[in-house]
């Protein structure tokens, strides 16, 4: 079985994101592997370790080699770089045809990627790719069990609801969390992968799709509630909080 894991780099929201003329300054933006894709890779490798499969990491050329090398160090069997001129701000809908063609060419039985990315305002990659391929989509996945012919995907829907769904391959899975946190790749393994991992190049004929949605401008959020800041000294802050608790009857009413 071939599991193709699509890995995307996205601006790291832990860092400061600078804007230029109302759009993200992509030259300055610190790009990192999408956290959900990180989990998708982990889940794919876990599935492979349990049931045997070939894990193929797939990324756009613009994601950089490091992402693919890391994937190899993490347990991917092959690393494939998709060769196509793609603008950094291309939406998921735009790149989905490329990913779909690549998945076909790689003989994918299962395409796995993150359930979402932090900036995909016009829709997520997993469903767009599934639509391009006309394969079923299983989103919100928190586990993939490939030991049976029809893999079983664990889905979580919030509110503590979850389901086990069996799927006839081929299919696309959007992962929200792997069963365990993504494994640590030691620097030595990473360096080894940097030296030895061969990254295949894959040309695709498909063109970028049109994006019907349009980004007008990006800005910082408008604050909705006015917060009252308490003291930054913990001792004082604790006194203030206990006073608030008293006023609102959360703890025993006043002295005595």
């Amino acid at each position: 079985m071939n599991i193709v894991v699509i890995l995307q780099t996205v601006p790291d929201s832990a860092e400061e994101l600078t804007l230029a003329d109302g759009v993200l300054d992509w030259d300055e933006a610190p790009l990192r592997l999408n956290e959900f894709d990180d989990h998708a890779l982990e889940e794919a490798v876990l599935a492979k370790e349990e049931a045997g499969a070939t894990v193929i990491a797939l990324a756009l050329e613009s994601a950089g080699d490091r992402v693919l090398q890391t994937a190899v160090a993490r347990g991917a069997d092959r690393a494939v770089k998709l060769i196509k001129e793609v603008p950094l701000d291309a939406s998921a809908r735009m790149v989905a045809p490329l990913m779909a063609e690549a998945a076909r060419k790689l003989g994918a039985d299962l395409v796995v990627t993150g359930v979402q990315a932090p900036g995909d305002i016009f829709g997520q990659l997993a469903p767009f790719t599934a639509a391009e391929l006309a394969w079923p989509l299983l989103g919100g996945a928190v586990g993939i069990d490939c030991s049976a012919d029809a893999p079983i995907v664990a889905q979580e829907f919030g509110g503590g609801r979850s389901a086990q769904i069996s799927v006839t391959l081929p299919a696309v899975v959007g992962v929200q969390a792997a069963r365990r946190p993504p494994r640590y790749v030691s620097g030595s393994k990473l360096r080894q992968a940097v030296q030895s991992a061969s990254i295949e190049k894959l040309d695709v004929a498909a063109e970028l799709a049109d994006e019907p949605g349009k980004l007008v401008t990006l800005h910082s959020p408008h604050k909705t509630t006015a917060i009252s800041f308490l003291d930054d000294d913990p001792v004082t802050a604790v006194d203030q909080i206990v006073e608030i608790f008293r006023q609102r009857g959360i703890v025993g009413g006043g002295r005595g």
Partner: peptide
Amino acid sequence: IYGGKLEADVEC
């Protein structure tokens, strides 16, 4: 988007 760090005004 971006973990609540930014907001995008979009249209279609």
